[in-house]
Nucleic acid binder design. Structure first.
Lengths: 232, 232, 232, 232
DNA sequence: TATGAATGAGCATTCATTCAT
DNA sequence: TATGAATGAATGCTCATTCAT
């Protein structure tokens, strides 16, 4: 009895310790993710060195490697982390009781807000080629083959949420009978291209203006005439 | 007389030799540009080393530096070179006797064809941060401050050609009275975003499909209802 | 109580470990300095590559950069290190109770001994132009503008110590009423010029002979007649 | 007869052409030497590139290699050339009817003037290690083993001229019975050290002041007492 | 667990020298 | 004769990653 009591107590303590450890682990991980997001966001992928992240987090470089498998893993984890929030927001919008047009507008606003702070993260995700050690060619159409599955899944979820909104619109007869995947891809492209505007020093749009503009064009296009009846 | 005859002949020969030399120089330069376009296009800017280009061109690295001032110069020269053709095409379209809608469609096709082979060049131009030596934070909206002026000019010309088409459309009452700069920026964004689709292995669009889709959405949007009368 | 005991013990261990680490760091640093002194001394500045030093120290090049900020820093650190000893010796001599003439002789001996092993270090310090990246013309009289301040200070200290000895000699009426700065500069020049003898394969002087000779000429000159009464 | 006339004429023409060619060759060579002297003098040896000299002379690099065997040869030729003038001056002084002290003073002035314009040439000659392709260690006391014989000879001639003056002084009882070679080496050291003053931003001496100072110290030393009777 | 230390592989750029024309 | 073109071999420096403690 006594022994079993102690044993139980010991076991419990061990559990607690592990929990504490686990908690601590997650705290540190999240802490690193936060800082890294900022750094990647400011410098992009290839211009961000592990040294810099280590410096900013005040951890040693070796420690970073305890929490993440490498620079790439860290980067993708940062994105995964960031996308979480966005996913929650998009889902919320999709479930609310707005008109499809309203929903689109709100989605666009949410995505723009998301990009606003994390411009260079997106840039890095969408545009930089990143390879571990050896240079590695990428056949077109098979980009970033090294993107981890969970991140891929997360991105598809986001996309699916938008698809859903578009489907609703079509069902309600508000949107033309387009292919929802095409449409959501077009919307994504529009926003993406808007944010990654390239090296031209053009006029700057506020997030509000940007959302307005993008929503408008996505919804109504530029032509005065109605859209064609049949859609390929 | 005789002397002057020989002198003239000598002079002529010298000129010919120089012409040949100049030609040779331009040939080599163009040869390098071609290979470099391919390499940059496959690996992006920062993952392309001068060593690699040297290897592919079968020139020595030092020779590359005879033709170009450095990696950046080479890269920008590649782009400049590529954009030349595109500019010619866009201008031709703009001057033809098509309807504005037709012109837009043709422009989109041209741009897509341009991007088709040079996907990663565009990617690199629009998205990679390049810095000569020191890491450098970039305030958003002030991207790539180091882009050379002639390249900037070329890009603006392209943009202006599109603006012109849109202005025509508005004047003819075919397009809504939008701001032409906004509209061309939206069109550019759409294409750009479409091409730089990010790491998701989505369904692949042929250049033809892509052009169709993008033109359609840019012109008519997704909504069934007409566009709003007033535009901010 | 028990806890505090362990805590104290733990803290102490940590301190010890840090001390050990610090010691190790200094050892390595000094080790590198030693080897680098030798290498620089054999090849001069510009002919010494970081690769070579790495090879000689059996550290990797990257490690050298952990201990020193760059080639120049390493070089100046080597000199700083070397000059330390010399400064101590000169000061000791200046403070002893010798006659000014004796002091000069001893100073000359000390400097010659210093140069003996480090001939090419001095050569490099005094004569090679070092520039980080760009070739750069140097207006005469404004040499080595990039010499770090602490090194400059150290050199001035040495010079000042010699000045002091000369001042004493003048005060005691043993030396002519010359300008002490001029005199110490002359002495320095004499030694320097003696050591950096140029490409002529002349007869070799032992450090002893060299000191004798230089001291004698500095003190008494070559003329049989007395020195002129008035000095510029 | 006629034939022989023509033959003679032809031969003469050939000779003339060769003479002209030779003249042209020497002109070009001297032209290059002049420019190179200036460039080496401004940048030192290792910081002067063949490219730079080619640029300044407006010859091609390949042409430089027609006139000189390589960078080192060019450099030594420059020095040889420069030293020619100096040799003539020193010999003239030595042969004039001045007192030995006067001669020394004039010699010092001449050397200072020589160095004045060519500071970095001297610096390079005396202090930079230069090696063709492979780094090459130099055992102390056997400096610059690659110095060409004619340059060595020229330098020894200069030295011998000074020796001669000193010998005269000793014979006339004006100078102490020192070893003339030692003395001339001391004088050389003094000037050399004075000119190559190192990285300290000390007070600047005009050529006039410098000559005065150096002559004075060389002749009379600093001590008030007479020089020791016996000299080792 | 956390880290200081170490490094291999790479990178953009330079330059003395050679050679075909 | 003169040169444009080409290059092999360096060079200083960086960085993601590993490992002993």
């Amino acid at each position: 009895m006594v022994i079993s009591y102690f044993k139980r107590k010991k076991k419990k303590m061990k559990e607690l310790r592990e929990k504490r450890r686990e908690l601590h682990y997650q705290q540190n991980r999240n802490f690193i993710l936060g800082i890294a997001e900022d750094v990647f966001s400011r410098f992009g992928y290839s211009q961000t060195s592990m040294d810099l992240i280590a410096q900013e987090t005040q951890f040693s470089k070796a420690t970073l490697y305890r929490y993440f498998a490498g620079k790439q893993d860290l980067f993708f984890s940062v994105i995964q982390n960031s996308l979480g929030d966005l996913g929650v927001q998009l889902t919320a919008i999709q479930r609310k009781n707005f008109s499809p047009e309203e929903k689109i507008k709100k989605i666009v606003v949410a995505i723009f807000k998301f990009y606003h702070k994390k411009k260079n993260i997106g840039r890095a995700l969408f545009l930089e080629r990143m390879f571990a050690r050896k240079r590695q060619e990428v056949s077109p159409g098979e980009h970033h083959p090294q993107i981890p599955n969970n991140l891929r899944k997360k991105l598809l979820e986001l996309s699916e949420t938008i698809n859903e909104v578009i489907r609703e619109g079509i069902d309600q007869g508000v949107f033309a009978p387009v292919d929802p995947e095409d449409a959501s891809f077009i919307l994504g492209s529009l926003v993406r291209g808007f944010v990654f505007r390239g090296p031209l020093g053009r006029k700057e749009y506020s997030p509000h203006q940007a959302s307005e503009l993008v929503s408008r064009y996505f919804l109504y296009g530029i032509a005065r005439s109605n859209q064609p009846k049949k859609i390929s």
